Simulated assay, not measured.
Amino acid sequence: MKKTLLALSLVAASGSVLAADYTDGEIHKNDYKWMQANLMYVSDELPGESSHDYLEMEFGGRSGIFDLYGYVDIFNLLSSSDSDKADANSKIFIKFAPRISLDAVTGKDLSFGAVQELYIASEIDWDGATVSETNPYAVNQQKIGLGSDVMVPWLGKIGLNLYANYDSTQKDWNGYQISTNWFKPFLNFDNGSFISYQGYIDYQFGMKDKYSTASSGGVMFNGIYWHSDRFAAGYGLKAFSDVYGIKDSDAFKSTGFSHYVSVTYKF
């Protein structure tokens, strides 16, 4: 398997990378970068039960002390008037999640037990929407906290981050988020392609009553994907529970399941 594909495999869900021993001062020896385009369709995405197509430009890599993952989603790519996103307040979603390796900054091996590397972790989520009578929520948040790469049975190395959450819409701190992600190839073929189980969990808690109708909530994504050196395709089942602190109701559904299908080209 090529080194670039292995690196992409480790970060495809959220940016985890192979930890390095930086005690020799060579912080750039594991540098790499990647980018891919995902053409996607989701059925009954929550909150709000929206079904639509979208294009996702996904990227990441490592450069010295910096570990990076991010993506930009563009909804209703064909500008269809029949799409659930045709009249949406926002037709874009951005996630930008840089981490700074404390091992690389200090030049010390900070690993212990199952923890392979430590980071200052951050995350920016932005849809640019404005809360109004017709649009009940917006996702404009910045998070800061402690990150890590952790070895766990069977899955191998996962990313595990704990953040404090600042809500730009409310101009106030509002709760915390714990996030984890994984990428596990479990079936390999003779031509070098493989099938993986990949996904993530984002769970928010401790949210304030004055900003949220539920004090906790989150998502879990479970995907089965076929990968080659240049292409990927797969299906994902995403479970939602009071996502974004929105209490599930008949008027605005925020708990349930959504289905994702995607095809990918790797640059």
Score class of each variant (00 low, 15 high):
residue 176 Y to I: 03
residue 233 A to Q: 00
residue 168 S to G: 02
residue 254 S to D: 13
residue 218 G to C: 06
residue 3 K to N: 11
residue 97 A to C: 01
residue 265 Y to C: 04
residue 167 D to V: 00
residue 159 G to I: 03
residue 13 A to R: 11
residue 129 A to T: 02
residue 229 D to T: 01
residue 267 F to I: 09
residue 139 V to F: 13
residue 164 A to M: 07
residue 224 I to H: 02
residue 242 D to F: 03
residue 243 V to Q: 06
residue 170 Q to N: 12
residue 27 I to W: 01
residue 134 T to C: 05
residue 173 W to G: 08
residue 196 S to L: 10
residue 14 S to C: 03
residue 137 Y to I: 00
residue 110 L to S: 01
residue 80 S to P: 13
residue 44 D to N: 15
residue 140 N to V: 07
residue 56 E to C: 11
residue 123 E to W: 07
residue 227 H to E: 06
residue 105 V to I: 14
residue 196 S to N: 13
residue 241 S to M: 08
residue 211 Y to M: 03
residue 178 I to G: 02
residue 125 D to K: 02
residue 156 G to K: 01
residue 50 S to K: 15
residue 5 L to T: 13
residue 101 S to C: 11
residue 180 T to G: 05
residue 111 S to E: 06
residue 108 K to D: 05
residue 6 L to V: 12
residue 117 E to G: 04
residue 206 G to D: 14
residue 169 T to H: 15
residue 192 G to E: 09
residue 81 S to N: 12
residue 65 I to Q: 04
residue 74 I to T: 00
residue 266 K to D: 11
residue 229 D to G: 01
residue 43 S to H: 06
residue 183 F to E: 14
residue 198 Q to F: 05
residue 146 L to E: 11
residue 213 T to K: 09
residue 69 Y to K: 03
residue 145 G to I: 00
residue 215 S to A: 07
residue 147 G to M: 13
residue 42 V to N: 12
residue 71 Y to F: 14
residue 112 F to H: 12
residue 183 F to M: 11
residue 235 Y to T: 04
residue 54 Y to S: 09
residue 16 S to M: 11
residue 226 W to S: 07
residue 161 N to D: 05
residue 183 F to R: 10
residue 80 S to Q: 00
residue 127 D to I: 10
residue 108 K to S: 08
residue 44 D to K: 15
residue 180 T to L: 04
residue 45 E to W: 00
residue 48 G to P: 06
residue 72 V to A: 15
residue 48 G to K: 09
residue 138 A to Y: 02
residue 164 A to D: 14
residue 127 D to S: 09
residue 193 S to E: 01
residue 230 R to G: 02
residue 133 E to P: 04
residue 6 L to Y: 12
residue 248 D to S: 10
residue 172 D to Y: 08
residue 8 L to V: 10
residue 46 L to H: 03
residue 16 S to T: 15
residue 26 E to I: 15
residue 22 Y to V: 04
residue 213 T to R: 09
residue 170 Q to V: 01
residue 204 Q to D: 13
residue 122 S to C: 08
residue 245 G to K: 03
residue 90 S to T: 00
residue 146 L to D: 10
residue 143 K to A: 13
residue 78 L to R: 10
residue 162 L to Q: 08
residue 95 K to H: 02
residue 63 S to M: 12
residue 83 S to H: 02
residue 77 L to Y: 11
residue 28 H to M: 11
residue 190 D to A: 15
residue 51 S to E: 05
residue 211 Y to T: 05
residue 151 M to A: 11
residue 205 F to R: 05
residue 162 L to E: 00
residue 175 G to K: 01
residue 251 A to E: 01
residue 143 K to V: 07
residue 21 D to I: 00
residue 77 L to K: 13
residue 221 F to H: 13
residue 199 G to A: 14
residue 55 L to D: 08
residue 77 L to V: 09
residue 94 I to D: 07
residue 264 T to H: 12
residue 68 L to V: 04
residue 202 D to F: 07
residue 262 S to N: 15
residue 233 A to M: 12
residue 202 D to K: 08
residue 244 Y to K: 01
residue 238 K to E: 15
residue 161 N to P: 00
residue 136 P to R: 02
residue 166 Y to G: 05
residue 254 S to T: 13
residue 214 A to Q: 00
residue 156 G to H: 07
residue 19 A to L: 06
residue 27 I to T: 06
